[in-house]
Design a protein around this nucleic acid. Sequence first.
DNA 1: TCAAATATATAATATTCTTATGTATATTTG
DNA 2: CAAATATACATAAGAATATTATATATTTGA
Lengths: 111, 111
Amino acid sequence: MLYSSELIKGTLKTIILKLLKENKRMYGYEITQTVKELTNGKIQLTEGALYPSLHALEAEGIVTTETEYIGKRVRKYYTLSAAGKTHTKEKINELVDFMETMRFLLDIKPA
Amino acid sequence: MLYSSELIKGTLKTIILKLLKENKRMYGYEITQTVKELTNGKIQLTEGALYPSLHALEAEGIVTTETEYIGKRVRKYYTLSAAGKTHTKEKINELVDFMETMRFLLDIKPA
DNA sequence: TCAAATATATAATATTCTTATGTATATTTG
DNA sequence: CAAATATACATAAGAATATTATATATTTGA
């Protein structure tokens, strides 16, 4: 089962940030594969969603990039900036809090 | 603290459906107020997001509507259809599953 | 050798929300 | 009793973001 895209939309950036926090340095394709593996295929990030998000994070100064060549193939690594580390903590805390609220909402029993 | 709008986007319809499941019959304004109360003001649905969503649910046959007059003021009640009840269960299950996956992702510890 | 996997990127389109606006009635407070 | 606030629905213009498709190129394995 794949999750509906609306669900992923709201959490996409937080997922990216969390992975960068744990792995220090990652490239786009690696992020899609890691998310796919960690979620047993339930979350499959598409390029059309991932790259614009990564570029936005870069423009906001949340991540910095380095380009490397693996043979002749280009690879762009993303790393959290100092500001990005702070931002990441905030986003993760917000998501944890949000999930607690949602859990409460979904737990409400019929009268 | 208010949650960022992206987070709410993904779960808006599921929240509406869950409330309709528990309360049988609700009108738009009532939904905004109930969500606000249940979340201690952390989720504040705007009309611009709520009404288009409700109209979409109606167009999809997930909810049916009845209009009533309270004095001279109009009030539009929304109720889950039979198909809507099934759909609601699916959406709730999906969200619960998704939150478990997110919890797992967020729990990953540094190596 | 050729298909699949690896790897990044963008453009056109679609979707959906934000913000603002509009309409109208009802209630509370100074 | 006037003004402010709350109730109640709705839509439109613009913004933001994702989907889908496309483009390019290398590497690996059957």
